[in-house]
Design a protein around this nucleic acid. Sequence first.
DNA 1: TGTGGTGACACATACTATAA
DNA 2: TTATAGTATGTGTCACCACA
Length: 257
Amino acid sequence: MAALPGAAAPRLLLIPGEAAEPAAGRRLSVVLPAGAAPSPPGAPQPARKRQRLTHLSPEEKALRRKLKNRVAAQSARDRKKARMTELEQQVVELEEENQKLLLENQLLREKTCSLSLENQELRCRLGLDVLKTEKESESKVVMESQVDEIGLVTGSAESAALRLRVPLQQVQAQQSPFLTNSTWILMAVTLQILSLISCWAFWTVWTQRCFSNVLIQNQHAWKSWRKRSVEKQIPYRPPPLPLWGPHQLSWRPLMNS
DNA sequence: TGTGGTGACACATACTATAA
DNA sequence: TTATAGTATGTGTCACCACA
């Protein structure tokens, strides 16, 4: 601690630190220069919100003010540092969450791709127009506005049957000459198609339900994260500071004096 | 009028890169 | 290896503002 100029016999001035750390109620010791006017010993201490400092000399007042400002500055810096640390931690957490979501997105895309390929393969086995149906599934909205312009030559057997308003079997019979020879083959194929359609419908409903579950889980995670972040921001709790005083290594009052 | 918060400034110290 | 300049960080102080 730097010695004050002309301080032959320093004395202590105790300052209650009510504002910097109200809960701690710390008391800071100030070394006053010798010869300063002492406060009246045993004087009655009326309950005041703002204490009168008339018993202090201007020099003591300045020193007291200086010390209080020193403590306030240190507290402000500690809070600032804590805020920065918290923000940095938040950055790390958000980056981790972003990586998780990216990975999840990648997995879902791969799953969609494999399901699409599987769907294509099944349609190939059925002898349906794969390219046409893929286009239909990808841009259904655009295609719906152009259905009449496409004509009757393109499309799957089901859509052709709907457009021609003729039985599906008739359309399929026209498209596949093998089915005209045997009625039971026709019926078997029809049953198979119906079974596959029902499977496809079940699969669609199931995948949509799974995807909605993922969305709900993500919404829960997002809401919980928002809640945590809001809770973190509203009440700022300064870190528990140890008593700042001469016992610390950084205690260098009147460094520039 | 006392008090706390904060930006700005000056200073001290530790650390690092670089040339001799 | 050593001296030195540059940089980062911490600290004290002052000035200013808002509040009670």
